[in-house]
Design a protein around this nucleic acid. Structure first.
Lengths: 68, 68
DNA sequence: ACATAATGTCAACTATATATTACATAAAGT
DNA sequence: ACTTTATGTAATATATAGTTGACATTATGT
């Protein structure tokens, strides 16, 4: 499922996918894939994204239903 | 760095590493390695651990300082 | 002392997160 | 219309998360 929470938080900081990628030290494609929702980042990268966007893990990465 | 928070939450539920591993659908060695602290699980596994232990991502997996 | 359960750890394997390069399209500015 | 920036999406390659099997050690129980 798409992660719109990241997209929104990124928009709130006026950062492009590429900006966020550079701050987190990963490639733009990785950020794109995470927002697109078809994968499963490591906790370390999740923390980096949270720090960059001033959000908590629960705010950006919790999901009530693990499937679909 | 060691993750004592998981160890404590697991103890509070009286679960062995093996019990937790089975609930989360991973191997005992994976749980052991995460508690030992020398690696970087995926967010999906983190959520599974949180559900099993009734804790939030922030409670079990946030870290103030990413290094050491 | 013995048995059993829980943990630590290693080696070899498989699955998948992430990188790199590249190209196509969409949005926004001029 | 043109240019630039942002995004979507492949293909191939590499690093590392997670598995499996095995053995040693440390509790805990009797």
């Amino acid at each position: 499922m798409k992660n719109l929470k990241i997209k929104a938080a990124r928009a709130a900081k006026d950062l492009s996918q590429d900006d966020l990628a550079k701050i987190c030290g990963v490639s733009r494609q990785t950020i794109n894939a995470i927002e697109k929702g078809d994968y499963n980042p490591t906790i370390k990268l999740c923390r980096a994204i949270c720090r960059a966007l001033d959000k908590s893990l629960d705010e950006l990465f919790w999901e009530e239903d693990e499937n679909e």
